[in-house]
Design a binder for these strands. Structure first.
Length: 717
RNA sequence: GCGCGGUUAGCUCAGUUGGUAGAGCAACCCGUUUACACCGGGUAGGUCGCAGGUUCGAGUCCUGCACCGCGCACCA
């Protein structure tokens, strides 16, 4: 027995040494597995592309969970003999990264992005992104992730940029990308457009004011934003509202807080007669709903009264005021004119920008959009329909299944996707202008071309992730071998943002699905069930816990009993429990290797021993089924239970008298049995606790491959 | 408003197609010249949210309700 077993298991020293050995072996790379003869050249492939972490800093426990789950499937399939690829990468995360760096520069140097200029800011962001990247890669390795580093990708590197330009051009040629003036979500703080899903609604109390535009205006109108009323061009009432029927079609002029306005009364079914006074003041340029109603009644969109800095652009007493100040001014004016009829408190949801916290100001802007309701040429279906069908047809399976309902609910509410952003970090829109000419795709030859100033929504490039990482648009060997990928594993919170968009982009570009199965994990919460966050100070750093208890223990704690789609609670106690298990396993090995020293493994087993072996074979099949059916939470628990409470507590204990007894046949049988049981247990446990199992296996007399990582799975032995 | 999930032992959670309720932690009792004290053996603890229904049989299927959590939409 090697001397190392005389000391307790030391995860810290072992884990980094083992990872380095794996990495140096090259066996994370499936080509190398074939070259070294551990995978058959004609083996079926199994591929997973890592959801690229944002280069905004460090990984959190959610990432650790993601890595544990994916690595389990990957290691299992690799041991099963599949040509297994797990491809790593990082995401430039455009707005998230830029706003982190901008905040940092503002804090340390007091400078804004406009003080620095585009080139200098980008340089700073790239430096930051580079450092984040290195930190993150180190963390991925610490967790034991068996990723093929030779294929690492970045959403903003040259290959991925080319994929972005190519898809943009194809979509544009297909008539699905258009540039249009529409109401966007404008973030005055970040000075950019944001998409619907970058909005966070905050519940606040607000005042609902009921007023008239002038003394002779026939209908009182309710609003929470009196300052916008200087931009009104109409009033809408419900067509069946008896109170106002007689006024529909009439037009009125007024001077509202120094601003001349012209109001037409229209009837529109979208108005809720029960809310406020049942009459809506229409401000088409500053409300998406008003814009749509105005469209239906030929009212002007062009009365713009608020600018990108959320300041008033009208003449008179409101000129240049912030919207919040203008609101007070208008209310004072209404009061002094006797036009204010009522003031009540209501609760409303205020739209704020996720990244900056700025209050979203709806503004009409010329932006790039993807049309989700237009038939895709050659497919006779819209993007929206294709995205629904991929899941409805069961081409893609979502786990847990009930999330399919959430998915459909979400997609059915999908509107055209605004893909342009007014930030600097990211893929620049691949459109070049010269006078009236415009070129889409690759930069044109010749003088005088100017590229579009805007960048693309970060989800545009991550939407291509499953195939851009495999070298597309080149028809590479990797692309042919590994696409569509087998599994996408991610948090349920980005099902709509990312998962749906990958399906959309892949259906359009390749006419196929990006992955066959979506496995959604839940949130990792703290011990009392709160979300982990910087502001609460309850963050758990994966590096700290792995340093303390080992990655094996952290992985088990994250996986055992954690069903997909369900949030879990994490605590150091829990992880500590599994570090005890690693040590238990270590001592099982110590006992077995010590007492079976020199055992003849070809000894015929006694009937009783053969039964014990067959019980473990049954367990192996059980565990395989559990993993195949995505119940890794159960598989992990079963092996844990077997190793500790069956193998250690029962079998090892009852072996003691046999091993010291005088029946030599029984003893020889038992020695062989114990070695075999330990060997199988290590194989079964390897995907879950890769380090300690590998370290023990290196001392096993049954060792039949260079690493346990590429040894055969028990039901295939 | 539309939709999703949860409610099982003191705590955290499993329970795969309906067939006598499980694990971990905590508690309590016993054990220690030993592979491991990062241990072993044992005990106690549940009307499976409530009310109906289907069934020979329901934690599991159906209907309704309550409470908790979440998503989307609206928010004039």
């Amino acid at each position: 027995m090697p001397e190392k077993f005389l000391r307790p298991y030391d995860s810290t020293a072992t884990e980094s040494r083992i990872y380095t050995a794996w990495e140096e072996s090259g066996l994370f790379n499936p080509d190398e597995c074939v070259a070294q003869g551990v995978t058959r050249a004609d083996a079926p492939s199994y591929s997973v592309v890592l959801p690229p972490p944002n280069v905004t800093g460090r990984l959190h426990m959610g990432h650790a969970l993601m890595l544990a789950v994916e690595d389990i499937f990957i290691r299992y399939k690799r041991m099963k003999g599949f040509r297994t690829l797990w491809l790593p990468g990082t995401d430039h995360a455009a707005i998230a990264t830029q706003s982190v760096v901008e905040k940092q520069i503002k804090k340390e140097e007091g400078l804004s992005r406009h003080d620095l200029g585009r080139d200098e800011l980008l340089k700073r962001i790239e430096t930051f992104a580079h450092e984040s990247h290195d930190t993150i890669i180190g963390q991925l390795k610490t967790m034991g992730a068996s990723l093929d580093w030779s294929r690492e990708a970045f959403t903003l590197d040259e290959t991925r940029s080319r994929a972005v330009r190519t898809v943009f051009k194809q979509m544009s040629d297909a008539g699905l990308i258009y540039r249009g003036l529409r109401i966007v979500n404008w973030d005055p703080k970040g000075q950019t457009t944001i998409s619907d899903d970058e909005i966070v609604y905050e519940e606040r109390t607000a005042k609902l004011y009921t007023f008239r535009y002038s003394k002779d205006f026939p209908i009182p109108v309710a609003t929470t934003r009196p300052e916008t009323k200087v931009g009104d061009v109409g009033v809408a009432v419900h067509p069946d509202d008896a109170r106002y029927k007689e006024f529909v079609g009439k037009e009125y002029d007024a001077v509202f807080c120094d601003v001349p306005i012209h109001i037409k009364i229209v009837a529109d079914a979208e108005v809720d007669p029960a809310f406020g006074t049942g009459a809506v003041g229409l401000t088409p340029a500053h409300s998406r709903v008003d814009w749509e109603i105005a469209d239906r009644h030929d009212l002007s969109h062009e009365v713009i009264i608020i600018n990108e800095y959320a300041k008033m652009t009208v003449a008179g007493r409101l000129e240049g005021k912030k919207t919040s100040e203008a609101r007070e001014t208008v209310v004072e004016w209404l009061t002094s004119e006797g036009l204010l009829e009522k003031e009540e408190n209501i609760v409303q949801n205020v739209a704020t920008a996720e990244r900056t916290g700025g209050i979203v100001e709806p503004l009409p802007k010329l932006q790039w959009w993807i049309d989700v309701n237009k038939p895709v040429p050659g497919r006779e279906k819209t993007l929206k329909e294709l995205v629904i069908e991929a899941v409805r047809s069961n081409a893609i399976t979502i786990i847990p299944e009930y999330f399919e309902k959430t998915y459909f609910h979400w997609v059915e509410n999908l509107r055209d996707w605004c893909i342009s952003r007014q930030i600097w970090y990211g893929h620049r829109i691949p459109v070049w202008y010269r006078g009236e000419e415009a070129v889409v795709g690759e930069a044109p030859e010749g003088e005088g071309w100017v590229q579009d100033e805007d960048t693309l929504d970060t989800w545009f490039s991550s939407g291509l992730w499953t195939f851009s990482t495999l070298g597309w648009p080149e028809n590479t060997k990797d692309f042919q071998t590994y696409h569509p990928t087998d599994l996408l594993e991610t948090g349920y919170d980005i099902l709509p943002f990312w998962v749906m968009r990958m399906i959309l982009m892949t259906e359009f570009t390749l006419g196929t699905i990006p992955f066959k199965t979506v496995y959604l994990h839940g949130l990792v919460r703290d011990a009392s069930g709160r979300k982990m966050s910087k502001s609460l100070g309850n963050n758990m750093d994966p590096l700290d816990v792995t340093a303390k208890f080992g990655a094996d223990a952290a992985r088990m704690a994250l996986v055992v009993g954690n069903t997909p789609g369900t949030d879990m609670r994490m605590s150091e106690e829990k992880i500590k429990g599994y570090s005890r298990f690693a040590n238990k396993l270590w001592n099982i090995a110590r006992f077995v290797l010590d007492s079976a020293n020199g055992a003849d493994l070809s000894t015929e087993l006694t009937a009783g021993d053969a039964e014990l072996l067959s019980a473990l074979q049954t367990l192996s099949r059980d565990v395989s089924t559990d993993i195949d059916e995505y119940r890794i939470y159960m598989a992990a628990e079963k092996i844990y239970h077997y190793a500790w409470h069956e193998l250690a507590d029962k079998i090892l204990e009852e072996s003691k008298p046999i091993l010291s007894g005088s029946d030599t046949a029984a003893r020889a049988s038992r020695q062989a049995l114990l070695v075999t049981l330990l060997d199988r247990t290590l194989r079964l446990l390897h995907p879950f606790m890769p380090f300690v199992t590998e370290e023990i296996w290196q001392s096993m007399p049954t060792k039949d491959a260079k690493f346990l990582m590429v040894a055969r799975w028990p039901d295939a032995v």
